[in-house]
Structure formats: C-alpha cells, structure tokens
C-alpha cells in the first residue's frame, strides 16, 4: 500500500509540475501548482508529518495560491506570449536538466541508502503537540523573528499597493 500511494501521489506531483511549466496560461499553471501542493501534503502524511501536511494545505494551497489566483484574475492578461528560443538552449536544455536530476539523485542515494524504508505509521512524532512543543522551546527565537518578518511583509505589501502611480 505504501508503494502504491507513494507512486500515485508522486505521479500526480510530477505530472502537475510538468504541466505547470508547459502551460502558457498562468491560471492553468496555478491550478497545477495547487495539484502539486495537495499531493505533497498527502506524501507528508505518509511520512508521518500530520501537522505539516495540514499546514501545507492551509498555508500554501489555501492562502498563498488564493493570492496568486486573485492577482491573475485581477490583471487578467491572458496567455503568455511565446518568445523565440535560442538554439543552444533548445537542444541542450533537456539533457542538462536530466544531468542535474541525475547528479542530485546520486547524492541522494548516497545520503539515504535504499535499505532504509519509509513505512506509514512507524514515525508518529509529527503531531501538532510535538511540533508546537519544539516550536515554542528550542525554536522560539526564530519563531518570533518570523512573526516580525510577516508584519514587515504586510506593511510592505500595503505600502506598495497604496502608492499612486506617477
């Protein structure tokens, strides 16, 4: 079951990610990105990260992407204009991408040998209580710092959006 669920959600994630890059209309890309995020949340659940899975859906899919879709709908600029691609990138792009994935995979296989396996339910430390406890003890200072960061970001966004265009 683990393998089946992993491949199901991995396939959805990769498929949506490829669709994100290939679609020319930003709304299609945004919906694909939501697909990636939701399937990643499912993978987090398989990894025993219940709280992070829920936070992923609430924060990414429910808040950040709503903002994106909102802006896309507001500007409503239609599809992207395609530009002429230079020959070098057309022929070397995909092979170089595969080389990059290969290199990363080699490193990953080195870090985590295939003998270690993920089994659903064997790690249960990712509940809200565990994350909260660590967040408010060991990581209290970074946590407070991010709250200040959020405040600054809100102020920045308001100032940027309010300024009249000359």
């Amino acid at each position: 079951m683990d393998v089946f669920l992993f491949f199901l959600f991995a396939a959805i994630a990769v498929g949506c990610a490829v669709n994100l890059v290939l679609q020319t209309h930003p709304i299609s890309s945004a919906i694909s990105l939501i697909g990636v995020m939701v399937s990643l949340a499912a993978l987090y659940l398989l990894l025993g990260a219940e709280f992070i899975a829920a936070a992923q859906v609430i924060v990414y899919a429910g808040a950040i992407m709503v903002l994106f879709i909102f802006v896309i709908m507001l500007l409503n600029t239609g599809s992207e204009e395609t530009e002429p691609v230079n020959a070098l990138s057309r022929f070397l792009g995909l092979p170089l991408l595969l080389v990059m994935v290969g290199l990363l995979s080699v490193v990953m296989l080195d870090v985590a040998p295939p003998s270690q396996e993920v089994r659903f339910g064997s790690f249960t430390g990712g509940g809200a209580a565990d994350v909260g406890l660590l967040l408010f003890t060991k990581y209290l200072l970074p946590f407070e710092a991010t709250s200040v960061l959020i405040l600054i970001a809100i102020l920045g966004a308001v100032v940027l959006a309010m300024r009249e265009v000359d």
């Binding site: 683990d2 991995a10 994630a13 930003p26 991408l97 995979s105 870090v111 985590a112 295939p114």
Partner: peptide
C-alpha cells in the same frame, strides 16, 4: 513493504529540477 527513503529524496530532486527549468524558460 515500504518505500525506500531515497525515492522521496529523488522525487524532491525531480520537482526541484522541474521548478528550476520553469524558472528559466517561462516569461510571465
């Protein structure tokens, strides 16, 4: 049976690579 941990990491590498390529080729 379970899924090897490295598969998750490779999936993450694939997604990262796709994101990077999109960052380079998209114009919007």
């Amino acid at each position: 049976g379970g899924v090897p941990i490295s598969w998750y990491l490779i999936l993450s590498a694939i997604l990262f690579a796709i994101g990077a390529s999109g960052f380079l080729i998209r114009r919007n």
